[in-house]
């Protein structure tokens, strides 16, 4: 079996967190990740940054915080072109709804509202149709304790059940604000088991789902729109003029 590549798509650095993106990346690499996304809050006005070193990639991300759905759609439009991962900080009924109805959103984080788990059959159907992943941020489980952790676990258990029924993508993240908040992929999978996520679901929630989000936001060179792609034939350097005209004719494929 091929060893899966693991990604953590919700990591905070300075100014949200305590450490630099480089420090977070170094520890994440040691723990066995292939990539992380630095998703600082939009309210801190930090510029999304990304870099790659020794096969470990740090993706540009943003976590949009807003209380107003119409402002939220504006912020999504503002950041979409500049980031690989666009996360919405939910936790309020109207924001959760606006997030799952927008195709440009990748991930909806922190769903549980003060009243309930934040996900119902209506939202789940929209999330599934628009391919918005539901995030389970495990810091609540390994950092929290007492009643708050109990509530989080039961909300997560309910959300897994609904997401499974409506085929909503699920994603596991650490929501780390310091490098002590990161957890190794195997530990994340074990923690997901606490609220009823199957092992294979947990593995895809930390490997293939995040990889799919990144790949979807990084179109290949000839990409025009979904289903339309320009295929450029390889050009021979000697007979440049002829080959270019040929490749232009070769044109479009579906």
């Amino acid at each position: 079996m091929v060893k899966p590549k693991f990604y953590d798509l919700n990591v905070h650095s300075i100014p949200d967190g305590k450490n630099t993106p480089q420090q977070m990346a170094a520890l994440a690499k040691h723990l066995g990740y292939t990539g992380i996304a630095i998703t600082n809050h939009s309210s801190t006005e930090s510029k999304p940054t990304g870099f790659e070193s020794n096969g470990f990639e740090t993706f540009r991300g943003i976590e949009i915080v807003s209380n107003n759905p119409s402002k939220l759609h504006g912020l999504i439009g503002k950041y979409r072109q500049n980031v690989d991962v666009l996360t919405i900080h939910g936790g309020n009924e109207s924001i959760n709804r606006a997030a799952v109805e927008n195709r440009n959103v990748d991930i909806l984080a922190h769903l549980p509202t003060p009243k309930d788990s934040g996900l119902n059959h209506i939202l789940a159907k929209s999330a599934s149709a628009n391919n918005v992943a539901i995030e389970f941020n495990l810091d609540f489980i390994f950092k929290g304790h007492g009643g708050r952790r109990v509530h989080t676990l039961s909300h997560f258990r309910k959300n897994v059940e609904i997401a499974r029924k409506f085929d909503v993508p699920m994603i596991l993240t650490s929501n780390a604000v310091s490098y002590f908040d990161l957890r190794a992929p195997r530990e994340m999978i074990a923690l997901a088991g606490l609220f009823g996520m199957e092992k294979n679901e947990a593995i895809s929630a930390i490997s293939t789902v995040p990889a799919g989000i990144i790949a979807g936001n990084r179109p290949k060179p000839g990409f025009i729109r979904e289903g339309v792609e320009e295929i450029v034939e390889k050009v021979d350097i000697v007979n440049t003029s002829e080959d270019i005209s040929e490749s232009e004719e070769a044109g479009w494929s579906n």
Partner: peptide, 11 residues
Amino acid sequence: ELTRAAVTTIT
């Protein structure tokens, strides 16, 4: 798996 999850809650 349960032990692994429990031990990672040490912060």
